[in-house]
Amino acid sequence: MSLALRTFSSVKDANTALQVSGTRYLGGGTLVIRAANEGDVSVSSLIRVTDPGLSQIAVSDDKVWLGASVTMAAIARRPELAALAPAARAVGGPAIRNMATVGGNLFATTPYGDFAVALLALDATVATEDGEMPIETFLAGRDTSRAIVTAVGFSLPKAESFRFLKVSRIKPKGISVLSIAAHLQRTVDGSVTSARIALGCMADRPMRAKAAEKALLGCKLTPQEIAPALAAAVEGIAPITDPIASAWYRAEVLPVHLGRLLLT
């Protein structure tokens, strides 16, 4: 089966074309083209946009805007985005990172989508032509969305407040057993005043560990004080089973790796 490729200079025109049945948006192509190569016949036409604004990175004060076509490699190269570099480098190998985009990662199904886990922990907003929405709202409705993502925005975290961990069986570019991102605010004495913890592979899309977040409030990051948060981390999860790991295994090792992340 052949695939037609249509190119547009504006997101508006591409959005209109994307409403036709059988069309799919083409960003970096790491997900769409693989699906086609594996026999997905539901797509007959690919839509892409050449608007240069989609590939721009804007950093102003503590606010970051990443165009949907910004690649993981581009993020990893920017010194001011050093806090996000571990999450960007967690996406595949060098060839994949040169193609994989911010927008595409938002649609990646588990066990992929490690960068989206980081964005969820950072309370990012997702922009389309219709406006902006919280990333949690976007992720919940992404399966039925036909609007092209244009950018994501978030407040730039301080290096000491943001942590990311990907666990895989093959280093450095293996598929995730799980991924965890944590954005923590602390007082001078080290007590946690706010926490956002996002998990990958613990559901069919990135999710927050809200019970663990609540249990961390007021705690210092010591083995004794974080113990209740680690116990609460498994509340509400529904890990996947795939050739990489079983749901049972993912649930068992989650508290272990969350503990390591928090104590690092």
Rank of each mutant, 00 (worst) to 15 (best):
A233Y: 12
W248R: 15
A88P: 09
T187K: 07
I96K: 00
A251T: 14
K158N: 12
A231N: 04
P134N: 03
T137L: 09
T137M: 04
T109A: 15
G22R: 02
T150A: 03
R146I: 06
D242N: 15
A212F: 11
G174W: 04
D123L: 08
V256G: 04
S2E: 08
D51Y: 10
E213P: 15
A233W: 11
A14D: 05
K158F: 10
L230M: 09
G22K: 03
K171T: 08
G259S: 06
N98I: 00
A118N: 09
L261V: 09
T222Y: 11
I75L: 09
Y249G: 06
R24M: 14
L106I: 08
L139E: 02
P172G: 04
L66M: 08
G28I: 03
L261Q: 01
K166V: 05
M1W: 06
G236C: 12
R250K: 12
S168R: 13
L54E: 00
A247F: 10
V234F: 08
I175S: 09
A147K: 12
F162S: 06
Q185K: 07
A68E: 03
R78I: 13
I180Y: 03
I197T: 09
D40C: 10
A121K: 04
V192Y: 03
A17T: 05
T128H: 07
R78S: 14
V49W: 11
V102R: 02
L230T: 03
L26D: 06
S2Y: 10
I135P: 03
I240K: 11
L119E: 07
A35Y: 03
S69A: 15
A58S: 15
H183D: 08
A116C: 15
A74T: 14
V256M: 04
E252Y: 15
L165I: 03
Q224K: 13
T150H: 05
L254R: 02
A118I: 07
V256N: 05
K214W: 00
I96F: 09
V102G: 10
L263W: 07
C219E: 08
T241R: 08
A238S: 14
V43T: 13
A209Q: 12
V49K: 10
A140Y: 06
S161L: 06
D242R: 10
P52G: 09
V152I: 05
A90P: 11
V102P: 13
R205S: 14
S176I: 07
V32Q: 01
D189T: 14
T109E: 14
G259H: 03
G131V: 02
A245E: 07
K171L: 05
G141E: 05
L66I: 09
G29I: 06
T264G: 15
L261G: 10
W248N: 11
T50L: 09
A116V: 10
